[in-house]
């Protein structure tokens, strides 16, 4: 294609990048995303300035000084029966308990940052792992066809037939009890690899289907048939003709899968099946907040908003990417 100004041909990738950069909403979402990532990733460098307590050690018997007055972190209620203790609410004071404490007297703001680290780490790694597995499955099924295709497709059906969470819950219960053994490798039960692996596995059928479809179309495309009739070996066809052409489909999947993985992670952690205490993720903080929703709703609301902002940014950026690469919207499924 020759551009109107008569300059040299720009490759499709360059064009896509230009289209993406000119998409203002996609770029601002990328900015938001990078901000969230940076905030969370570098939490260890500054979170202790915010909290001045260890966000992983419970601190129910502690006190803190607000406006020169010393108060308990778990505040007794002055009702006639002296029933119950409430964690301190948001102080809106950036240097101590900005957003208040959770039921174990830990600083919510710094837990949000550390929780975000885990949530993001899990969702990005799970998306990456899922794409690798799905590409392997999709390409083998689509390219080989025949029996291999049927077996792989039915296996995907099996995984897809069990509703996402049921599948994840069953896997989590086993892995949380005894860890995961893959050959000589043992993943301990409180490792983040467990939720990463589960989420990646759960979404393999979702990602493998479009890849398989694309490979099947390409396999019967004229240029592939031509190459084959010229006697080009299969592996070269795969490497030279098929792989580069499915790359856009895979790239478009990435942000959407990450968004899905983030939602899945929070749901799993909410059902106590994801990240294990004392480590935190946005999902586990929501779960902590469930027990405080009547007294300190902030504990549940803040991580929920963090999830919404991040997932939204990922989705809008994914949209921009899709438009830039000119791929039609694929339908997506819920869990």
């Amino acid at each position: 294609m020759i551009s109107s100004s008569g300059q040299t041909t720009a490759g499709p990738w360059v064009q896509a990048t230009r289209a993406l950069i000119s998409n203002r909403s996609a770029m601002s979402c990328l900015g938001v995303l990078l901000l969230v990532i940076l905030l969370c990733v570098f939490a260890p460098f500054y979170a202790h300035h915010i909290a001045r307590t260890d966000p992983f050690i419970s601190n129910v018997a502690g006190t803190l000084t607000v406006n020169g007055q010393e108060t308990d972190i778990m505040q007794p209620n002055d009702n006639p029966l002296h029933l119950g203790l409430s964690p301190i609410g948001p102080t809106w004071h950036p240097r101590s308990y900005l957003l208040g404490a959770d039921s174990q007297g830990r600083d919510l703001a710094s837990r949000l940052l550390y929780g975000g680290r885990n949530s993001l780490l899990i969702s990005f790694s799970a998306a990456l792992l899922c794409i690798i597995m799905a590409s392997a499955v999709g390409i083998s099924a689509g390219f080989s066809g025949g029996v291999i295709d049927i077996i792989l497709s039915r296996l995907m059906d099996i995984m897809w037939a069990v509703p996402v969470y049921l599948f994840a819950i069953s896997l989590s219960i086993v892995t949380i009890t005894q860890g995961l053994h893959i050959g000589p490798i043992t993943i301990s039960s409180n490792s983040l690899l467990v939720p990463i692996f589960i989420i990646a596995l759960v979404y393999v059928p979702y990602a493998a289907r479009p890849i398989r479809g694309r490979v099947m179309t390409l396999r019967n495309a004229e240029f592939v048939l031509a190459a084959r009739s010229l006697g080009v070996p299969e592996y070269r066809i795969l490497l030279r003709d098929i792989l580069p052409n499915i790359l856009p489909s895979v790239i478009v999947l990435a942000p959407l899968l990450t968004a899905l993985a983030l939602l899945a992670e929070s749901s799993l952690s909410f059902l106590s099946l994801g990240v294990q205490a004392p480590a935190a993720s946005w999902g586990t903080i929501i779960q902590d907040g469930e027990g405080l929703i009547y007294t300190r709703p902030m504990v549940a609301i803040a991580p929920g908003l963090a999830i919404i902002i991040t997932v939204m940014a990922l989705n809008i950026f994914g949209d921009g990417l899709r438009d830039a690469l000119d791929i039609r919207e694929t339908s997506r499924r819920n869990g």
Binding site: L81, L83, G84, S86, G291, Y294, T295
Partner: peptide
């Protein structure tokens, strides 16, 4: 009774709580 409801009960439902 879940712990986060205790203060509410102690405040508003004193006569209906049994320990």
């Amino acid at each position: 009774v879940p712990l986060d409801r205790l203060s509410e009960l102690g405040q508003h439902f004193t006569s209906r709580v049994r320990l």
